Amino acid sequence: MDGDPIHRWIADIVPGRSFVDIGGIGEWSKQERVTQSVAAGAARSAMADIEPADSEYWRFFHKLMYKHGIARDAYDSHAEVDVTRADLAERLPPSDVVHCTGVLYHCPDPVAAVDNLRRVTGRWLIVNTVVCPQRVENAAGTLALPSGAALFLPGLSEAERDVLRLHYRTKFGWSIDDTAPRPRAPGVKMPHVMPDGRLNHWPYWWLFTIHSFRSLLQLLRFDIRDEWTWEDHAHCVLCERVG
């Protein structure tokens, strides 16, 4: 993402501190931050992810670290780490700095996820989510949201879906139907509920407004120290745990 300030945040706050990147191996490690934490002089770096240890994503990540000259004993890895599970703090050691981006909008329960992140955050949390503008207006109609809204995507009406479909197709060239399919739609790549009844963490579940996302972080006792919005679509926040 052009103009991404996360690299600067890491350079400023990570030196001499422990660091963990939660969820960074997805999309073939395009947004991983372990390399940046090591370069910044972290006391200890780690990657954690919901994928099992034998996943191709993990193998790719380890090869990427080797390519960057980062030895396997220079970072820890924690597989099958689900930020929505109540036992997160038992499965993942706390770190001074926690980075968790590209994750919350994939969580069925993002409130529980942020609460769990607090339990493993020593001081600093770098987090983001995909957000929705409070007003989207185009040829398909108008979608207007109050400032405190969190849009539950499986519950979209067809009229709302039409507006968002045109919005994302015009802006980014993809469809909301691909990332947030209709409930029980046959043959979709990313159903919200898997055939075995498990909730899926790959589709989009929620779109917060920026205000509601900020309020969630503040509710769970994080103070916002810096923030940045990319393309009115992804909102990134540097938080400090308080209280």
Rank of each mutant, 00 (worst) to 15 (best):
V111S: 09
D96F: 02
P183C: 11
I176F: 02
C236H: 15
L166C: 04
L151A: 12
P108S: 10
A79Q: 05
T209Y: 11
R44S: 13
F172A: 10
E227C: 14
R221G: 03
R44L: 07
A149N: 07
K171R: 13
V114D: 01
P191V: 00
D49T: 05
V237H: 05
L238V: 04
G155F: 04
Q134L: 12
T142A: 14
V103A: 06
L64G: 05
A185S: 10
T35G: 12
I25N: 03
G26K: 08
V98E: 12
D76R: 11
R123S: 13
E56Q: 10
V120F: 13
L166F: 12
F19C: 04
C107S: 06
P108Y: 01
H201P: 08
E32R: 07
L117I: 10
F19K: 02
Y168G: 00
W205R: 00
E231C: 11
H62R: 15
D226E: 09
V81I: 15
E227A: 14
L156V: 12
F152S: 13
M65P: 01
I224G: 02
V127N: 04
P154G: 08
R72M: 01
W205C: 04
L238Y: 05
G187E: 09
G23C: 08
V114F: 03
E240M: 09
R17G: 04
G102Q: 07
A139W: 00
A53W: 00
R8D: 14
A89W: 02
V14F: 02
F208Y: 15
T170W: 03
G148L: 13
D226V: 14
N116W: 00
I126H: 00
A40P: 07
F172N: 10
P108G: 07
Q36E: 14
E240T: 09
I13F: 01
F172Q: 12
A43M: 03
S29K: 07
R8Y: 10
Q31S: 10
S45M: 01
V120C: 07
Y75E: 00
T121R: 00
A79P: 06
A79E: 04
W9D: 05
P195E: 06
I126N: 01
